[in-house]
Simulated scan of single mutants.
Amino acid sequence: MNDDANGSGRPAGEARRDKREDRLKLALRENLKRRKSQARERADSTVSSPASDEMPRDGE
């Protein structure tokens, strides 16, 4: 008898690794989407607010 515990013809460890890789790919993709969204929000907020060089500094 082989290690075909999942019915796919592959060893159980390989199927477990595939599930883990799929989970990690999905998490990475979601993280990238979130970071891009945050970067866009930061870029939008810097465009709408005055630049720090234009603001008067205290003591100068």
Rank of each mutant, 00 (worst) to 15 (best):
residue 49 S to T: 10
residue 40 R to N: 06
residue 11 P to K: 13
residue 16 R to W: 15
residue 18 D to T: 08
residue 4 D to W: 09
residue 40 R to C: 03
residue 58 D to L: 07
residue 41 E to Y: 00
residue 33 K to R: 14
residue 7 G to E: 12
residue 15 A to F: 04
residue 9 G to C: 11
residue 25 K to P: 00
residue 20 R to A: 13
residue 52 S to I: 06
residue 26 L to E: 13
residue 60 E to M: 08
residue 6 N to G: 10
residue 58 D to S: 07
residue 58 D to E: 08
residue 21 E to C: 09
residue 32 L to M: 09
residue 40 R to I: 05
residue 49 S to L: 05
residue 58 D to H: 06
residue 55 M to F: 05
residue 40 R to P: 01
residue 49 S to N: 11
residue 42 R to M: 05
residue 9 G to I: 07
residue 24 L to D: 14
residue 46 T to M: 08
residue 33 K to F: 07
residue 54 E to G: 00
residue 15 A to C: 14
residue 52 S to M: 05
residue 17 R to P: 01
residue 22 D to N: 09
residue 13 G to R: 11
residue 42 R to I: 02
residue 58 D to T: 04
residue 38 Q to H: 06
residue 57 R to T: 04
residue 44 D to P: 00
residue 57 R to I: 03
residue 4 D to T: 07
residue 18 D to F: 08
residue 22 D to I: 09
residue 41 E to N: 03
residue 36 K to G: 00
residue 42 R to S: 02
residue 46 T to P: 00
residue 14 E to D: 09
residue 42 R to L: 04
residue 34 R to Q: 08
residue 50 P to Q: 04
residue 5 A to F: 15
residue 57 R to W: 02
residue 33 K to I: 05
residue 3 D to G: 13
residue 46 T to I: 12
residue 41 E to D: 07
residue 31 N to L: 10
residue 12 A to F: 15
residue 20 R to K: 12
residue 23 R to N: 09
residue 44 D to K: 06
residue 26 L to D: 11
residue 2 N to T: 13
residue 21 E to P: 02
residue 35 R to C: 00
residue 47 V to G: 02
residue 50 P to I: 02
residue 11 P to W: 09
residue 14 E to V: 15
residue 12 A to S: 14
residue 16 R to Q: 14
residue 4 D to E: 13
residue 43 A to C: 05
residue 52 S to Y: 02
residue 12 A to I: 12
residue 51 A to T: 05
residue 49 S to Y: 01
residue 59 G to W: 15
residue 57 R to C: 03
residue 38 Q to C: 03
residue 32 L to S: 11
residue 45 S to T: 06
residue 49 S to E: 03
residue 12 A to L: 14
residue 23 R to G: 04
residue 34 R to G: 02
residue 2 N to P: 13
residue 37 S to C: 05
residue 51 A to D: 11
residue 47 V to S: 06
residue 53 D to L: 03
residue 26 L to R: 12
residue 16 R to E: 14
residue 19 K to T: 12
residue 10 R to K: 15
residue 44 D to F: 05
residue 5 A to Q: 15
residue 48 S to F: 01
residue 54 E to I: 01
residue 54 E to Q: 07
